[in-house]
Structure formats: structure tokens, C-alpha cells
Amino acid sequence: MRVTVTVNGTTETHDVETRMLLVHYLREVRGLTGTNIGCDTTSCGACTVLLDGESVKSCTLLAVQADGGEITTIEGMAAPDGTLHPIQQAFHEHHGLQCGFCTPGMVMAVASLLKEHPDPTEAEVREGLEGNLCRCTGYHNIVQAVLAAAHSGELVP
């Protein structure tokens, strides 16, 4: 089936198998391997991307469901000159990542969270990231990074 999807501002049309998951489309068809696959059950959040501005788990969408949609992946977060997005920068400055495998999904989940809760409390950050698992950081520094990003004044609402 033919699908037309805008990913990080670039629109392309491809023929895909109807059973192809969005995450496989992004990784294999669009060559954007920053989005990772960590589970089979919509549990870990490693595959989180933005669909029309909201966080979704791209392992639980068919590529055909995203037809006509606008996707942002981790590769679309930094500025074209490589300057990290304020959320990425906050993760860097607060050591909010170790192995980095959950990080792309985590950053995308945070982007959506901060859009919905621009001034979150620590509890709201923790609740808001309930769908993203990390095995390295114990979340402490991730939470610090999110709070710092929220209060950096650099996020466009």
C-alpha cells in the first residue's frame, strides 16, 4: 500500500506492506535508526516518536495508519547545524543517559510531556514518563533533566 508520510519535515511516498509497523517504516524505509525497539508489548517506550505533535509508541502503529501524518523522530530534534534541542541539552548537562538506548524515546516522550505540562512538578514528570523504561539511570537524572529543560525558558510552547 502507498503511504505518504512527512518525517522531520521531509515528505516521501513509499509502497509498504500493510503489516509493517511504523517503527520499521522509520528505521528501514526512511533509514532513521535513532528510534529503537525495546519490547513487543507497548511497555518500554523506546520507540516513542511524535505523530502530529503528540508522543506515540511507533511499535503499536501500522505505517499505513500514519499515512498523511507528520512524524518527528529524535533525528529531527537538533537544529540543522547540530545544536541540540533544549531537552537534549538538558539530558546532556544532567547526565540523563548512560547506554543511550532508551534515550531517543525518552526525549520524545519528554517533548510531548512538556507541551502538555509546561511547568511540571517532579511528581508530574515521574507520572508523565510512566510509559518509558530505562535500565541505567534509575531515572534520577532524567527527572532532573526534564525539570531543568522545563525551566530553561528555551522551550517554545
Binding site: T42, G45, T48, L51, E54, S55, V56, K57, T60, L61, A109, S112, L113, E116, G128, E130, G131, N132
Partner: peptide, 9 residues
């Protein structure tokens, strides 16, 4: 229900 990503879909 679920988590934010689930609630978005």
C-alpha cells in the same frame, strides 16, 4: 488508562 503515549492513540 495506560500511559501518555497510549492515551494519545
Amino acid at each position: 488508562v495506560g500511559d501518555p503515549q497510549v492515551r494519545h492513540r
